[in-house]
Amino acid sequence: MEVRTIKVFTTVDNINLHTQVVDMSMTYGQQFGPTYLDGADVTKIKPHNSHEGKTFYVLPNDDTLRVEAFEYYHTTDPSFLGRYMSALNHTKKWKYPQVNGLTSIKWADNNCYLATALLTLQQIELKFNPPALQDAYYRARAGEAANFCALILAYCNKTVGELGDVRETMSYLFQHANLDSCKRVLNVVCKTCGQQQTTLKGVEAVMYMGTLSYEQFKKGVQIPCTCGKQATKYLVQQESPFVMMSAPPAQYELKHGTFTCASEYTGNYQCGHYKHITSKETLYCIDGALLTKSSEYKGPITDVFYKENSYTTTIK
């Protein structure tokens, strides 16, 4: 009895394709271990004539594949690729409408935090270190965002349907971005203890939790000093293409032309909904596939993004 075979390709990165001759009487799992086709788990399936010449994702289970996976995804987590594939199996079914010149995501599976993050990423200057993220990001900007969303979920250790947080998501993504040249110098002034300067680099240099107003941050924000008295913390120097200011959701007025974009969060910790506000020729609110415009805006804002380049204080 002759062994019926077909020729397929296996890959971990969709760049390096490895030619395989597979036995049609055995499952993919018996031949390769966990195997995925377009995100779908085909591990328990036997090869079919229609699979001839198709590319299958496999887990990096030998040295060659491990090197290829690390170079593309910059992670050695053995569960990463499987999590990416199972997320992709959902995100490829989502709709990605162009809204006001940006790629958004039609609401499904509690994905409003991903839509808000995706919209924000198209408006701030950011370059990702893992080629996987950078490639998928370019495709997302062009309207094909399924891979990018699935990668975000995998890097953030999230599953489809789980509630997510924009600030946490951005923080994970910033860790995989090139923020080497970003720098922030802060000064804390206390009447009792004097003053202390701190220099922050990388992710810490672009994120701040405690106030939404970048102007206020430049002037000074009140913080408790270690001595128990009130101290003032203010920005001395900022070198970065953008800054992200966050605070627990509270009524906040966004003035046209003073910011790049913002995240609105309605609801409580267990259950809520994100919308995205962007400042173009007027203010726009993007909620999944829905767009509304207004000249002014007041609502429960939790993150505001500002364009920056270089700032030095005039406070002496």
Rank of each mutant, 00 (worst) to 15 (best):
K293F: 09
E68I: 06
I124P: 02
K280Y: 08
K93R: 12
E215M: 06
Y155M: 00
F259N: 00
Y155E: 04
P34F: 10
R139I: 08
T159P: 06
Y138V: 14
T75G: 05
F9M: 13
A69C: 14
D135I: 08
I277K: 01
D23W: 12
Q123C: 09
V22P: 10
V8G: 05
G101E: 06
C112A: 04
V22R: 04
T232Q: 08
R139L: 11
H48Y: 14
T314Q: 15
V42E: 05
E253Y: 08
Y96L: 05
L121Q: 03
A117G: 05
K191R: 10
P131E: 02
Q195D: 12
E125L: 03
V206M: 04
Q195N: 12
L119P: 06
D23Y: 09
A205V: 02
T312S: 12
L133E: 02
Y137G: 02
H51P: 02
H176I: 07
N178F: 03
L179K: 15
E162R: 01
T103D: 03
E162G: 06
Y84T: 03
C193I: 02
C285E: 12
Y36D: 03
K219R: 13
E144Y: 10
S246G: 00
E68W: 10
Y72N: 08
G257Y: 00
N111W: 04
E162Y: 02
T91Q: 03
L235Y: 00
K280F: 11
K229N: 15
Y208Q: 04
L290M: 12
L153V: 07
T159V: 11
L186Q: 12
Y208V: 11
T266Y: 07
E281P: 00
L88D: 04
P97K: 12
M244H: 04
Y84V: 05
L173F: 04
R83C: 07
Y57G: 06
T159S: 15
S246F: 06
F9N: 14
F242L: 01
M170H: 05
C149K: 01
A87G: 07
F148N: 03
K46A: 14
S263H: 15
E281V: 02
E253S: 12
M170A: 00
V21H: 11
K307Q: 08
D303S: 01
Y172C: 10
N110H: 05
Y28W: 12
L291C: 11
K191F: 08
G164P: 01
L254M: 02
T292G: 09
G53D: 11
V21F: 14
Y73K: 05
K255L: 12
T199N: 06
N89S: 12
Q237S: 14
T91V: 07
Q20M: 12
N89G: 12
A87I: 07
A205Q: 03
V22W: 04
F174P: 02
V304C: 05
K293G: 09
N14Y: 05
C182F: 05
A231D: 01
L179E: 05
M207D: 04
N111P: 04
Q230M: 14
N129V: 08
K92H: 07
E144Q: 11
E308Y: 07
F148T: 05
N49H: 15
T278L: 09
K54D: 11
C112F: 00
I301M: 00
V304Q: 00
V189A: 10
F242C: 02
H256F: 10
L283W: 03
M24C: 14
V67F: 15
V22E: 05
Y172K: 11
Y57K: 05
D13T: 10
Y113I: 02
S246A: 01
I286W: 00
S310R: 14
L114I: 12
I124C: 04
K280L: 13
V3F: 14
V243K: 00
E162S: 07
G143D: 03
G210E: 01
V67C: 15
G39D: 10
V221W: 04
F56E: 03
V3I: 12
T55Y: 08
E308C: 09
Y113N: 01
F32V: 10
T35F: 08
F242K: 01
E52S: 13
T55P: 07
L126V: 14
T192C: 09
M26I: 14
K229L: 13
K307D: 09
V304F: 01
V185Q: 05
N100R: 09
